[in-house]
Design a protein around this nucleic acid. Sequence first.
DNA 1: ACATCCATGAAGCCAGACTACATAGTCCTT
DNA 2: AAGGACTATGTAGTCTGGCTTCATGGATGT
Lengths: 308, 308
Amino acid sequence: MDVQRLELLRELAERGSVTAVARATHRTPSAVSQQLKVLEREAGLPLTERSGRGLVLTDAGRALAASATDIAVALERATAVWDTFRNRATGDVSLVTFPTAGQMLLPGALQDLADHDGLAVHCTDMDPELSDFPALTSEYDIVLAHSMRGQHTWGGRGLTSVPLMTEPLDVGLPTGHRLAGRVSLGASDVVGETWIGVPLGYPFGRILHDIELQTGSRALVTQRFADMRLIESFIMAGLGIALVPRYTSSGDQPGRMVLKPLRGLDAERQIVALMRPDRAERLAVRTVVEALRARAAQVQAEHAAAAG
Amino acid sequence: MDVQRLELLRELAERGSVTAVARATHRTPSAVSQQLKVLEREAGLPLTERSGRGLVLTDAGRALAASATDIAVALERATAVWDTFRNRATGDVSLVTFPTAGQMLLPGALQDLADHDGLAVHCTDMDPELSDFPALTSEYDIVLAHSMRGQHTWGGRGLTSVPLMTEPLDVGLPTGHRLAGRVSLGASDVVGETWIGVPLGYPFGRILHDIELQTGSRALVTQRFADMRLIESFIMAGLGIALVPRYTSSGDQPGRMVLKPLRGLDAERQIVALMRPDRAERLAVRTVVEALRARAAQVQAEHAAAAG
DNA sequence: ACATCCATGAAGCCAGACTACATAGTCCTT
DNA sequence: AAGGACTATGTAGTCTGGCTTCATGGATGT
């Protein structure tokens, strides 16, 4: 019973093809195939089945792959133990973020981590509409993802998710707008407005949908953009109003744009760090996540202070 | 980070010397030493220290050995998963018991397990006074041990213990005894009697001590024997009375001996299966333990039926 | 001081995991 | 229908890495 082989099976369960596993583990497909064959012989029962060109796991294979995860977690926990003894989080950590969260959290977090010698954080950004967050955990140690409250699309998949912050979604208005003097807005206040929306399928979409449900009328969406800067420019030009994340937007722009909180709606998004459970155990990874969390708390505190 | 090496470290933590680890793992001391050296180099900090002729673990070494246990547990759980898929508990299971428990549980349990092809149970007995139960878990998969209630001497050592049964301790009297007609006995009834005791340090000893504490007088112990048959023969000869375990003694012997329950005292012993946590995960081991537990329940039920 | 226990070094052996290459099956395209 | 592109997987050979054997040095106790 070899751990390396089980690890291969787990990779196969995640990636779905021998070739992909080989690429990911810097081996030839032949080597992977041979090891899986050995594993199967040891197990005494088929772990994979051919399906078209590729392979799929049998029930037994999936079960075994699942326990391979437990082993990987225990293993990483062990290396974390000794990393702790050296008081050293070292190694490479790869991270992928969507742009707004990265802009808000990464510069500060990386500054805070600068004194950790030997800890190298490699960051990338990826458009949230194009990214299947859970799938990215195969390639990156940490995936910054956002989800609307109540949506736990990845809890079930056996991934570890650490909440970093909850960010309220406000309504952005041009300064001259008839609602610009209000303290907060309700669904009925805004449903009749001209909206700048996000592309269909984006998470914020649900909020506007909730507004429609609550009021019984349809909202008029004239434009749909993914880039928040673009949306803001439309708001400031007086071409409509939009939902903007409170912290990652430009915020109140004196003389040009104001943000007003929504009441009576579940208008906030969770920003979470998403990880494969074994990787989440690595001390280096935990250190980075902790830095992100601290930074997020600081951002929230600064905004709270500014508001209060 | 290699599992085999960590396993070696764990063995070292348990057995205390490279030579012992080598013997236990069928290797030469040199091989063990080399692997530990590699582990230490990987860890980047000393895991062992010389102490006289032998080695002792450093704090870091102990911590690492502890997480090695977690890995071993996960590993055995994985093999259990696939054993389950084959519906087959196979392999060798070694067991050591103290005589009375073995006589009561083993014949029946082994009969129940006879239909499991490929499951071989190797049993040994060992005198409870000579045996350090926790230490035996290094050599045997299952250690049948007894403890008085409230004594959890091995819970803390990171061992898995599965309770099999609680056996009441009765007072054995010769049939002609003045108390032989009673339904049950209290401490004050028996403290003045002539006692046949167990050797000093035996677990039952505490009961007699409790009797002395409760009554404030000392009990007269004329003989001390380890073997229950011997004790019973003294009882039947009218040479004294003694504490006897209800199920593993010969029980009521019409015309010769009667058993009377004690009230007002914590007069029972726990019989438990004691295992190293990784071994406890093996399907074969779990199967045997389950058979023992079932057998124990049956013994208790039979006695309850006979009494009622 | 010697015998005996311990851990550990050096040299060589051998299993087992890898690469490179070749083969066979499946899917899609033309 | 046939080729090309993709899968997985066999075969042969290489080489890493853990093992054994033998030898050394320190610690203990008689």
